[in-house]
């Protein structure tokens, strides 16, 4: 049987498949992890991903936008997999997670720079585990005898000191929001956001009582409702600049979101430059290219856009 292409849309996952005689490509979107931001659709070189805003029901919370992938256009390159801040998309070949765009350095890996020094952790602290809005942190403790310790408080103080703390972060799903870092009083966790940017809400433009952005924001605390005027405000500290809020905001310009820099492994790749352009802006791209003194690539970007002075 020749190429069979399959698309399945289930409640918890959207899967696309190419089934060849000895190869089976599968792209799976985990709908539980997907937040409806638009990063994948901006990064996709084939423009195969559409973000579909969900209609709002009066009196209910806004729903996150849904992601749809076009089987005709998708070429199973896995760039969406690499780009998703939440690790919601996975590409597999014969069941194995294979990303040849990374292997061939055709696309960079996002750098999730998270440093943990568990020596500084108070032996019974679980602040970060509780704080992680995506429940990606798991703390485990091991006693002097190598056995897991359930409750530190039950141990005698001498043994308490010798308890070792393991802090396991599921990095591949981590959007680097830094919530854990701020919740950690002793400063045992250091997180650098892989996307830098700016977000602002012009409350004057917000319709009364609208909390759509807040409804869909996956990071607790990045947005909050002010008791003063019952409007949504930004706590830029925690924002990961995914843009899920921007997608649902019903008013033009009420919410502005700009990504200015993305931390990634070094590559020379046209596909990345294009994605970068769309994720940040031509300015951002040129800045990055300038930094890497990639003159040729810079010219192609400039050619595609009417270049503002700033870029030159």
């Amino acid at each position: 049987m020749p190429l069979k292409t399959v698309k399945k849309d289930a409640a918890d996952a959207l899967t696309l498949e190419w089934i060849l005689h000895v190869k089976r490509y599968k792209l799976a979107l985990d709908k539980m992890r997907c937040v409806g931001c638009q990063i994948c659709s901006l990064a996709c070189p084939k423009e195969a991903i559409k973000i579909e805003k969900q209609p709002k029901v009066q009196g209910q919370k806004a729903k996150k936008a849904l992601v749809d992938i076009d089987l005709e256009k998708c070429n199973f390159c896995g760039i969406c997999d690499v780009s998703c801040p939440y690790g919601a998309i996975k590409l597999t070949l014969n069941g194995e997670h294979v990303l040849s765009v990374l292997d061939k350095e055709s696309y960079p890996e996002l750098i999730r720079d998270i440093k943990v020094d568990t020596h500084q952790c108070p032996k019974d602290c679980v602040e970060c585990e509780d704080a992680c809005p995506l429940s990606l942190i798991k703390i485990t403790r091991v006693g002097y005898d190598g056995n897991p310790v359930e409750d530190v408080a039950t141990l005698p103080p001498s043994q308490r000191k010798r308890v070792q703390i393991n802090l396991d972060i599921q990095k591949e799903y981590c959007p680097t929001c830094r919530v854990c870092e701020f919740k950690c009083a002793p400063g045992a966790i250091k997180v650098r956001k892989f996307i830098e940017g700016k977000i602002a809400i012009d409350q004057k433009k917000c319709p009364d009582g609208c909390t759509d952005c807040l409804d869909v924001c996956p990071i607790t605390g990045a947005l909050y409702l002010s008791e003063k005027d019952n409007k949504v405000y930004v706590n830029e500290l925690f924002c990961d600049y995914c843009g899920a809020c921007k997608v649902v905001c019903p008013v033009d310009d009420a919410l502005t979101l700009k990504r200015t820099k993305i931390h990634h492994t070094p590559v020379r790749s046209g596909a990345w430059n294009k994605a970068l352009e769309k994720l940040t802006s031509p300015v951002g791209t040129v800045k990055e290219l300038k930094a890497h003194s990639s003159q040729k690539a810079k010219e192609t970007v400039c050619r595609r856009f009417v270049c503002e002075e700033e870029i030159r």
Partner: peptide, 20 residues
């Protein structure tokens, strides 16, 4: 060899793949 992309090879009756 450096191309990361594969697609179904029509010449192979789509049984195998070839690079972009």
């Amino acid at each position: 060899d450096v191309c990361p992309i594969e697609f179904p090879n029509e010449w192979d009756m789509n049984l195998g793949t070839r690079k972009a």
